Amino acid sequence: MFLGPCAGLLTLLNVVSTLQLDENSPCSGLGCRKTVSMPLLDQMKGNLKADFDVSEMNQLLKVYIDQEIRSGVEIGMKNSVDNMINSRMQQVQQEAASVIDKNMSRYISDFESKMTKLKQDNEKELNEMKKVSKKYAFFATLSSSHDNLPANTVVMFDTVSLNEGDAYDGTTGKFTCPEDGLYHFSWTTVSNARKDFVSVLVANDRKIAENAVDSDSVSDGMTGTSNVIVRMRNGQKAWLAVSSSDGKQLRNSWNGSPCSMFSGFKL
């Protein structure tokens, strides 16, 4: 057994095998040979030569190396593809989140805007309904009769039996317009025989119409009634006043019931 030369041979074969493993490629040199010649030296100092067939070993090494290379390439490509996919997935997720945030912000803003407008519209309609349903009306009579009232004196109908909307004040005898619109006023006055009483409706600081009870030439009491429709604005006032000097007598009742009265309402 010659272990020394054999150990050297293995080293040499490893070097030769790594130099050329593809038999189909054109090449020259020791690495392309199917056999390797190795000079040997025996104990008798004679020169010997041994030929080793390495073709099968080359093929095995080639298959092994091909497998390793293919495995490495596959792993590398898989890792590369995984990284690309993960990177693209992160990018897509970020873009999707950004789009969702923008869309949600726009949707929320649109929804809040629509809800605000709807609330405003509802409040407006509710206010209009309140205006339509709101009633203004009053009815007042006298608690006592009046004699010899001076000209332009406000006649205070101080017994208020109806005051829907609280627009009439029995302590002043004046109606205050609560909102713009058309208003109907009616008043009736009664005086005794030979006692005239002429009244006038004043609205918007203008004399609108008079009601004359001319009983100075008759022997019985008389009555008179007038009705007017006036356009008024919010805050303007209306009242009854004595016209000229004809405020001689105004009765408050007849046979125990009110007979002189003042009323009004919004059309």
Rank of each mutant, 00 (worst) to 15 (best):
H184N: 14
M57N: 05
T171G: 12
A241Q: 14
S145P: 02
L48W: 04
S17A: 15
S105Y: 04
V132R: 11
V92L: 15
L126M: 10
A7T: 05
Y136T: 12
V81M: 10
G165T: 04
K124N: 06
V63N: 11
H146Q: 12
V36T: 11
C6V: 13
S217I: 11
Q90L: 11
F175L: 07
E74L: 12
T188F: 06
V81Y: 06
L250G: 00
D42A: 13
G76P: 03
F52Q: 01
G72N: 09
A50N: 03
F52C: 08
T188Q: 11
Q90D: 13
K102S: 14
L182Y: 10
S263H: 05
S186T: 14
E74W: 04
V198S: 11
A203Q: 03
D53H: 11
D214V: 09
D216T: 13
N122T: 09
R206A: 15
N103T: 09
F175G: 04
V228E: 08
V160A: 03
M38N: 07
R233A: 12
V16E: 11
R206T: 14
F175R: 03
R70K: 15
K134L: 08
K45P: 00
C259P: 02
I229P: 01
T35N: 13
Y183G: 03
F262T: 02
N79G: 08
V198Y: 15
K195E: 12
S87F: 06
L118H: 04
S80A: 14
A212W: 12
V36Q: 10
Y136K: 02
D246P: 00
F52N: 01
D169M: 07
N234I: 11
N227R: 10
L13R: 00
T141M: 02
D66T: 12
S161T: 10
G4R: 09
P39S: 14
E125K: 09
R206P: 01
P26S: 12
S191T: 10
D82K: 14
K102Y: 08
Q93P: 00
R106T: 11
V228D: 06
Q43I: 13
E56S: 13
A96N: 07
N79K: 12
S113P: 01
V198R: 05
C177T: 04
A238Q: 06
K266D: 04
V202S: 09
S257P: 01
A241M: 11
N127Y: 00
C32Y: 03
A241E: 15
F52T: 03
F197H: 06
L30I: 15
L201M: 08
D196P: 05
R251S: 12
L142V: 08
S145E: 07
M57T: 05
V63Y: 00
T225H: 04
A97G: 05
R88C: 12
V92Q: 13
F262S: 03
V16S: 10
K174I: 12
K131F: 08
D110A: 14
G264T: 04
V63G: 00
F138L: 10
E210I: 11
V190G: 00
T116V: 08
T188V: 09
R194N: 10
L142A: 08
D66R: 07
P178F: 05
K34Y: 07
D121P: 00
Q90I: 07
Q93C: 06
K266S: 09
M1I: 14
